[in-house]
Design a protein around this nucleic acid. Structure first.
Length: 198
DNA sequence: CTTCAGATGCTCT
DNA sequence: GAGCATCTGAAGA
């Protein structure tokens, strides 16, 4: 099974954010079960120049330490006291930057993902639940059972808990861009078109 | 379909 | 102590 290598992550964050669309996230649970979903929405965060990034201006705190790790590292943090956000560290090591995964669609073991989200099987989901399955960073982490316990994982380790497969590379013409969500505090950075979706 | 309040706890000042 | 890269359920149009 092909796994995206460190080179995939070790490059310009905006390029990586575009290229991550259509790729597959694979999550291995403790019992060996594989959850798989295809990425449909991403956002780029670049500490060097981006006031929306936790590591803006190379700010180093216990939380942002993960952003300074090797590219291909999972950055997962708690938000609003009850949800988690999944990011993939990009650029060369020491350049704090990452791609936030904002949305996906299930590919394998949708029943387990549905159970994590709604405590029911995929076929038992209501139309409303179907529409709101994994279309948000907190929803995605809930579906894939990701928490801060997975922060700092090496995504290039196919024997680990989390990695990516090539999936279907995005058709460049199908990629939409827009402003990022939920960063009203970020001054001029609120208008950066760093959100990508299919 | 839309808006809105409330949940809940960590992070950094 | 203030704020947060969010989500849900309830209520209204």
């Amino acid at each position: 099974m092909d796994i995206l290598t460190r080179e995939f992550y070790a490059r310009d964050t905006l390029e990586a954010a575009r290229d991550l669309l259509g790729r597959e996230i694979v999550r291995r649970l403790e019992d060996g079960t594989l959850l798989r979903c295809r990425i449909t929405e991403t956002e780029a965060y670049i500490g060097r120049l981006d006031k929306a990034c936790h590591a803006y201006g190379y700010r180093r705190t216990p939380r942002t330490e993960t952003l300074f790790a090797r590219p291909g590292t999972a950055y997962i943090y708690l938000i609003y006291g009850m949800y988690h956000c999944l990011n993939f560290v990009t650029e060369e090591e020491g350049e704090p930057a990452a791609v936030l995964i904002r949305g996906a669609v299930p590919v394998e073991n949708g029943d387990i993902i549905a159970k994590n989200r709604f405590r029911c099987k995929e076929k038992e989901m209501t139309p409303y639940q179907r529409k709101n399955f994994l279309n948000g960073p907190g929803k995605l982490c809930q579906g894939l059972a990701l928490t801060r316990a997975q922060n700092g994982l090496d995504l290039t380790d196919g024997a680990g808990e989390l990695w990516l497969c090539p999936g279907a590379p995005p058709d460049p013409a199908a990629v939409r861009t827009g402003r990022r969500i939920g960063i009203d505090y970020a001054e001029e950075a609120v208008d950066f078109p760093w959100r990508f979706y299919l």
